[in-house]
Simulated assay, not measured.
Amino acid sequence: MTGALDRYFVLTPYDPDEVMTLQQAAARARKSPGTIRNWCESEGLGRRIGGEWCVSKVALEMYLDGEKRALGRYLSGDRESNDVVSYFRRFDLRAQRPLNAR
């Protein structure tokens, strides 16, 4: 699955304020850290940085809300659509478009 995740723009550009640990994400989702790690791998909700899993608050919230279209846009690098921007605003984050996004 690593190859598939390489094309995702999760946590890109990197903003430490957007990051949650596996444990924080697990508490938010009321799931185990292992489940969150699996979601990071299968759904693109996070990525490994410095050997540790970092979970996107934005992506996790979209996933928990069932907002698959918004999540798909986020993962493709869209930081301008209203549904994507609304999640960044929810966490008082600035939505910055990745340089290499389509």
Rank of each mutant, 00 (worst) to 15 (best):
T2A: 13
G3E: 15
L5S: 12
D6Y: 02
D6L: 14
R7P: 01
Y8V: 05
F9I: 04
F9M: 03
V10W: 02
D15Y: 04
P16W: 13
D17M: 09
V19D: 12
V19Q: 14
A25S: 11
A27Q: 14
R28I: 00
R28V: 14
A29W: 04
A29G: 10
R30S: 14
K31W: 01
P33C: 03
T35W: 04
T35A: 14
R37Y: 08
R37M: 07
S42C: 05
L45Y: 07
R47Q: 15
R48Y: 07
R48H: 10
R48W: 00
I49T: 03
I49W: 08
W53F: 15
V55Y: 02
V58N: 01
A59V: 05
L60F: 00
E61M: 05
L64K: 06
D65F: 05
G66W: 10
L71M: 01
L71W: 08
L71S: 13
G72D: 12
G72Y: 04
G72E: 13
R73A: 09
Y74N: 03
Y74G: 08
G77Y: 11
D78Y: 07
E80G: 13
S81G: 09
N82D: 13
V85Q: 02
Y87D: 04
Y87F: 15
F88C: 06
R90C: 03
R90T: 04
F91S: 06
R94S: 10
N100Q: 12
